[in-house]
Design a protein around this nucleic acid. Structure first.
Lengths: 255, 255
DNA sequence: ATGGGGCAGGGTGCATACAATCTCTGCTGC
DNA sequence: GCAGCAGAGATTGTATGCACCCTGCCCCAT
């Protein structure tokens, strides 16, 4: 495959629903490869343990192997893939215990984050958090959680809520720790299996957390968030036990 | 600069004090670049915010830019450096608040880790933890904490203790989260400034934690570890406040 | 039939080439 | 004297080439 791209670069600098806060630049190939692979893995389109062939990914994105390799290094550091010398990368396989531990670690980190948010939020932050909680509730009620788009919308709304907390907590560094650490795979795996009641319960927790932040009660905010995440863990692990082999979200052959 | 290496590869497959448990393979260029850069940054031989020039690093290690770039991607994901498109990487600058937050996050994670260790350790693990605590105490008493080698020895002993806990907690995933997350820079910055009394206090905490694990008391182990880390935070931040501009550990020009 | 050696193809790791971008410097014109 | 700009050199981002590694398969000797 030889460079059929050239124009991709110029088209669409990314005017979509981009947050007005920061990025509007056109993505580097590296970044595109990273996001692509991340999504493929998170949404289950790679098997657990499946090998990631650099040249295939490169072809699929019409780039060379170089940016793909760099993306793989990032994913490796995030823990989404493992690598062996001269044998490339494969999607990480997590045991049930590991999944549980990671959820619990996440619960503590997000609990801490929520405490910070409750301490540091200004009026604008409080507003944003409440809005996000509202938005999540609407989304959950409106979309079909079985469809890919529905799922993605729910996830996006969920991210928005957490992002509002991060912003309120002035904790960008923590955010990196959270997202860049076997965080997403769990989230998606969880939502993939969430029942309507569970989604509903999440929406309720979001509201409660928003309330605790607005009331400047760090401990309660932290406790609620911790419990919220642990609820997610339990739901996810119930499903994991029922169906240990996750099924892909979409067809999307990465062949 | 053109390949003057060739032999580096063959020499010393790494028979040094390598843990018998795993690696004895010769390192890839990528890995070498990663470790080199990581150490340079952690030990303060790059200024905060200083730019990292790929070709310079490549020359210094007698490798091409390719593995260096991959190493930089890893460091970026770990949060040690930041990058901007077409403008390369620079050493991350942390505010005092961010340092404090990260320490606290770390305190919670390591606290959790200690709980796991107290729950899951077998007799062998308990033994290893006690030994490591002992070793740390000896090291602290024996070396000159002002010298680079002394500092490195203290850090190595410290790592050994924490590694023993990780091993006991069956928490390899968590370990990744801990180390790969703006963890090291803080550790070193802390030890760099530690006074003998503070090192002593650390040794004491290690013993207490080891005791709690041996006694199978997860809560106490967790609490002690959390406090241990927070002590470290306070010490580090006291020093930070006295001398906001860290000084390099060694001369070592990375020119 | 079976164990093993070797060979071919697929893939990875690294080096090198090159265009695009950035940055710095010195000059020009106001 | 200084803002601003052009150009050269420095540096990054990506593509491509190549040597080595690894795996699976076929064939041969036992």
């Amino acid at each position: 495959m030889t460079a059929v791209r050239s124009l991709d670069h110029r088209t669409a600098p990314g005017p979509a629903g981009a947050r007005p806060t920061d990025e509007s630049t056109e993505l580097s190939d590296n970044e595109r490869a990273y996001r692509h692979l991340r999504r493929e893995i998170i949404e289950g389109r790679y098997e657990q343990g499946e090998r990631i062939i650099e040249s295939r990914v490169a072809n699929a994105l019409a780039v060379s192997r170089t940016p793909v390799r760099e993306a793989v290094r990032r994913l490796e550091t995030e823990g989404l893939v493992t690598t062996e010398h001269n044998r490339g990368a494969q999607v990480r396989v997590l045991t049930e215990t590991e999944v549980g531990d990671l959820y619990e670690a996440r619960a503590r980190l997000e609990g801490f984050l929520s405490e910070l948010a409750a301490q540091r939020a200004d009026a604008h932050d409080v507003e944003a958090i409440a809005t996000a909680a509202e938005h999540f509730e609407h989304t959950v009620a409106a979309v079909d959680p079985e469809s890919v788009e529905g799922l993605r919308k729910v996830m996006a709304a969920n991210d928005q809520f957490h992002a509002a907390l991060v912003s309120a907590g002035r904790a960008d560094q923590l955010y990196r720790v959270l997202t860049s650490t076997v965080d997403m795979p769990l989230v998606f795996a969880a939502f993939e299996r969430y029942s309507p009641e569970e989604l509903h319960r999440s929406a309720m927790f979001h509201h409660l957390i928003a309330g605790a932040v607005a009331a400047r009660q760090p401990e309660r905010a932290g406790r609620l968030m911790t419990e919220h995440i642990l609820q997610g863990r339990d739901a996810a692990m119930r499903r994991l036990r029922l169906d240990p082999n996750r099924t892909p979200i979409e067809e999307g052959t990465h062949e």
